[in-house]
Every structure is written in structure tokens, then in C-alpha cells.
């Protein structure tokens, strides 16, 4: 770990100015991902700007829905009464992640901005385009179990590890950002990107831009939602695949985790299922359409079956509850 300067600004603007003012600076929130990176040598900033004291830690009910401060701890958000009663998919995506200790530590924005858990990204002795652009991708022909099956590129086949991001994707969340040039908002759907030929960029944020809040619109009356995470062990593991889903009247919304470099909003499937029956056969057929562009290797072929099965399980269950 390189020695760094530690700064603890008082306001979001001060934090943004500190990071924007130096190519060598980075934001530090809960630390559960960044401290890990510092130890492994994936990140070696010269300045760490701690955003823990900025007061971005409130959950507010708004006319449109919910506004979640960037610094709200994952456990606090999952325990929030409104989240529990109205946004089951949000609560469940949070609770499926990591462990209680880490959820106490990790923040909303930090969770969204966590980086891939690809074993080669973490192993500085192997080539990885995300860690070191131009060195090559070790995962494509290597350990594949946690690789993407949708939207991958020759440069990078990894997936985004966040559960929360998948839950927020299906909720059509919006991200509030403060940058050196002022504030802006962007749909969460536009926050994470596909790897293309620049996998070193996880998101569309510019250097120095700070997420200050995430807003979640109100779900339609009678909507039911949930999050299912399929994994090898029963807890404390990243998803092999995950499914976030909302069923509201004729509307079906589905986002997948564990399959792509970003939360994968299954728009083809949603269109296919709109207004129709949500029986197992129909859902499986719609998954097949969504998965048409998928590419798999020997270590990922199972994800086609698994994400299809998980989606069928989740949607048939939600359909039963929505009735």
C-alpha cells in the first residue's frame, strides 16, 4: 500500500474539489472495497478523501418516492421501515449482499461503485485489462465461473458484483451526482457501462464526480417485488446469477445480476411478458429470447439454465402473490 494523504472534508463540494483537483485522489466511503484494493495494490491513490463525514446519510420520503443518501449504510437502508414495506426488492437485494458486518460498513454509493471480484482483477501477477489496460484478459480462457454471458467484450468478460445495483436497476432509480461543474442526475441504468474496449472504466462518472444520493420512484399500487440470488453457498457469497423483479398489473420488470458487466435489465423479456400469463413455460420462453445474444464458455454455460430457472421461479411466485 502506497502512503497517501488523508483528507476529511466537511462538505460534498469540498470533497469534489479535492478529488477533482488531483488525478491522484480518490473518494473513500465505507472502505469495504477500496481498502481491499489498497492492500492488493489495485488502487494506489496519493490522496484519500473521506466522504464519511458529509452528512449524506439520510433516507427521505419524497413526493415521488424515496431519496437515499449516498452514505446511508446498507444495513440501515435495508432496515428502513419504508424500504421494508414498499420496496421488498431493494431490501432483499441489500440483505443478500456480503455479511452483516460489511452491510454496517458499506454505503449506498460505495456499493454501486464497488469493482469486479474477478479473480484475475485481484491477482496483480496476472494480465487484466480492467486493472492494467492493454495487458489482456485472463478470465476469458481461465476461471470462468463468475464470468459474464451477456454484453462482454474481448477485452473483459467480468460481471458487476453488486446486488443492490440490480435491485435499484429494476426500480428505475436515478443517481444524483455532484461534480466539479455542478450537480447532475442520471438514470441508474446509465451509471454502469459495458466493457467494450475500455473495461478499466466501470461507470460513466468522470473523475471527481461524487454520487450524493439515489432516488427511487414510487412503485405502482399493488406492485410486488423481490430479489433472488443463486449462489454456491447459502450466504456470504457473490451471485452466480441473481434476479430482481417487479410485477405490477400488466407490467413485468426484471433485472439480472451475475451475467454482465452491469446490472442487466431484461427488456426483451419484459416486452415479451407484458400483459401475458406468468406461467413457467412462458417465462422460460421469454428468457430464451432475452438470452439469444448470450455467449458462454465451458465454465458459464450453466448460467443460461440457472438464470432462466431463477427467473421462472421468481416470476411465477410473484404472479401468484400479485393476484
Amino acid at each position: 500500500m502506497r502512503r497517501f494523504e488523508y483528507a476529511r472534508p466537511r462538505t460534498p463540494q469540498e470533497a469534489v474539489d479535492l478529488v477533482a483537483g488531483s488525478d491522484d485522489a480518490a473518494f473513500l466511503a465505507g472502505g469495504s472495497n477500496l481498502v481491499d484494493h489498497l492492500k492488493v495494490g489495485i488502487a494506489s491513490p496519493g490522496v484519500l478523501v473521506d466522504v464519511g463525514g458529509l452528512g449524506l446519510d439520510r433516507v427521505e420520503e419524497t413526493d415521488g418516492g424515496l431519496r437515499i443518501g449516498a452514505g446511508v449504510r446498507n444495513s440501515d437502508l435495508a432496515a428502513h421501515p419504508v424500504v421494508r414495506s414498499r420496496y421488498a426488492v431493494l431490501a432483499r437485494s441489500l440483505l443478500a449482499g456480503a455479511s452483516a458486518q460489511i452491510r454496517h460498513q458499506a454505503t449506498t454509493a460505495g456499493n454501486l461503485l464497488q469493482r469486479t471480484r474477478c479473480v484475475y482483477f485481484y491477482d496483480a501477477t496476472t494480465p487484466c485489462n480492467k486493472r492494467e489496460p492493454g495487458t489482456g484478459c485472463s478470465a476469458v480462457d481461465g476461471y470462468q465461473r463468475y464470468n459474464a454471458i451477456l454484453g462482454a467484450s474481448a477485452a473483459c468478460v467480468t460481471v458487476h458484483p453488486s446486488d443492490l445495483a440490480v435491485g435499484l436497476a429494476v426500480l428505475d432509480a436515478t443517481v444524483e451526482v455532484l461534480g466539479p461543474d455542478g450537480a447532475r442526475t442520471l438514470p441508474l441504468a446509465d451509471l454502469h457501462r459495458l466493457p467494450g474496449d475500455s473495461p478499466e472504466q466501470d461507470t460513466t462518472l468522470a473523475h471527481g464526480e461524487l454520487i450524493t444520493a439515489v432516488t427511487v420512484p414510487r412503485l405502482p399500487e399493488g406492485a410486488v417485488s423481490t430479489y433472488y440470488k443463486a449462489r454456491d453457498r447459502a450466504s456470504y457469497a457473490f451471485a452466480l446469477v441473481s434476479v430482481a423483479a417487479v410485477v405490477a398489473g400488466d407490467e413485468v420488470r426484471v433485472a439480472w445480476g451475475g451475467v454482465a458487466h452491469r446490472p442487466w435489465r431484461a427488456t426483451v423479456l419484459e416486452e415479451a411478458l407484458r400483459g401475458g400469463p406468468l406461467d413457467e413455460e412462458t417465462v422460460r420462453a421469454a428468457c430464451l429470447e432475452e438470452l439469444a445474444p448470450a455467449t458462454t464458455g465451458p465454465g458459464t454455460a450453466f448460467k443460461l439454465e440457472m438464470v432462466t430457472g431463477a427467473t421462472a421461479m421468481v416470476l411465477t411466485d410473484l404472479a401468484g402473490r400479485a393476484r
Binding site: 488523508y6 476529511r8 473513500l28 472502505g31 469495504s32 481498502v35 481491499d36 484519500l48 473521506d50 464519511g52 452483516a100 458486518q101 460489511i102 454496517h104 460498513q105
Partner: peptide, 18 residues
């Protein structure tokens, strides 16, 4: 794991200075 300000917390992922 310790209790940090009353909540269970992983000390290995926390910077002391913070």
C-alpha cells in the same frame, strides 16, 4: 470483528485514521 461504536464491524477493512 469488533463492536465499533456499538455495531459489529470488520476492522481489517477500516483505516485506523478514519
Amino acid at each position: 470483528t469488533v463492536l465499533l461504536d456499538g455495531r459489529r464491524h470488520l476492522t481489517c477493512l477500516s483505516l485506523a485514521v478514519a
